[in-house]
């Protein structure tokens, strides 16, 4: 029987103090369509209102018994504040996440408004955090894209990738700018009192970059970011990560999060038992297409591979099957009473 509050459990988890049972949570969006429907709103509306953001997050956790709430749900808040715009697809049928419609395509045109943190939806997100923190029921998770991934949101990615070889100094200057923004925003979220922060350098896996390039282009900036931030701080990368787990572990994060492409059991062997590992199931496949009877095997597989908490590999796709998400929670509660490699039990 759980004895701790969700917030207490998550806070102790990241301090690697004994907990009663494994928390059910994530570092990425966990909003569900069941919460959106219960609120009587459309998904496109949720991103622009602090109340909708906060209420949809806490309603999702109320419905399923999650231990945390995480906002925002889209990756456009900072790019939009930088003047790159945001398409919310208000008239689209079904769920579409906002996107950035215009990107810089040359380094000379990049101009970051020094007052960007007060622009567009940045205050909306901060107000949502304030509401969730004041509520106090759940651990409040925040996240910021890593500098390379954020860069890909505001700058044409193919130009950036080619620039790594052709215009190294310009790329490094750009990465410095993005790094400063990431640190600035992450510190703002931490200053508000969020309980943990995930740096999502999602687009930097070895599907795109070689390990050597990752070490040169990604790691120095992540090290700078993690050196500036308070704990708990998590590094999440999706896609191919098997070849860079050691490099990821050398960035200064307290915990590492992977998606389903990581061979978690091998990662655990490489990294050892001291570091908190999070992951690593496919949220779309597991919650949206799979039969509920198969979910327990997926979740138990993550625990058996050596994670300390079973995180989805990405944001939940909101149109989850209710019984599948319930099975995630049930399975974690069933098998999560045992200690994991990095976190003991009371």
């Amino acid at each position: 029987m759980p004895e701790m509050t969700p917030r207490e459990r998550v806070k102790r988890f990241f301090k690697r103090e004994p907990i009663d049972t494994m928390p059910v949570f994530s570092g990425m969006g966990m909003v569900t369509i069941q919460a959106i429907d219960k609120m009587g709103i459309r998904f496109a509306e949720v991103h622009g209102s602090p109340d909708y953001l906060a209420d949809s997050a806490s309603t999702s956790s109320d419905i399923y018994g999650f231990d945390s709430v995480v906002v925002p749900y889209d990756m456009c808040t900072i790019p939009e504040a930088m003047g790159r715009g945001c398409t919310v697809y208000a008239d689209a049928e079904g769920i579409l996440y906002p996107t950035v419609p215009s990107k810089w395509d040359n380094y000379e045109s990049i101009e970051i408004d020094p007052d960007y943190a007060a622009k567009a939806r940045m205050p909306v997100v901060e107000d949502a955090f304030k509401k969730l923190i004041a509520d106090g029921k759940y651990a409040v998770g925040s996240w910021v894209l890593g500098p390379f991934t954020l860069g890909g949101q505001v700058f044409e990615l193919d130009v950036l990738l080619k620039g790594i070889k052709k215009e190294k100094e310009k790329v490094e200057g750009f990465m410095e700018k993005m790094t400063d923004v990431v640190i600035d925003v992450a510190k703002r979220y931490q200053a508000l009192g969020t309980d943990y922060i995930t740096i999502r350098e999602m687009g930097s896996g070895t599907d795109l970059l070689s390990p050597r390039m990752w070490k040169q282009l990604i790691q120095p900036y992540l090290r700078k970011i993690f050196a500036e931030l308070e704990s708990p701080k998590i590094l999440h990368i999706c896609g191919g990560t098997d070849l860079i787990v050691d490099l990821m572990n050398d960035c200064g994060a307290d915990a590492l999060s992977f998606d389903q492409k990581n061979t978690l059991a091998e990662t655990r062997k490489k990294i050892g038992d001291e570091v908190i590992l999070l992951g690593n199931f496919d949220p779309y496949g597991t919650f949206c297409t799979m039969d509920a009877s198969e979910v327990e095997g997926v979740i138990k597989g993550c625990i058996d591979a050596g994670v300390d908490a079973v995180w989805p590999g990405c944001d939940l796709w909101p149109e989850v099957k209710k019984e599948n998400v319930e099975m995630w929670v049930k399975t974690v509660r069933k098998y999560g009473i045992r200690p994991t490699p990095a976190v003991g039990r009371v």
């Binding site: 070889k165 599907d207 390039m213």
Partner: peptide, 14 residues
């Protein structure tokens, strides 16, 4: 053979 990654491929495509 993981000698080239996407940045190289993009430049080859150019």
């Amino acid at each position: 053979r993981q000698e080239y990654f996407v940045p190289e491929i993009l430049m080859c495509a150019d």
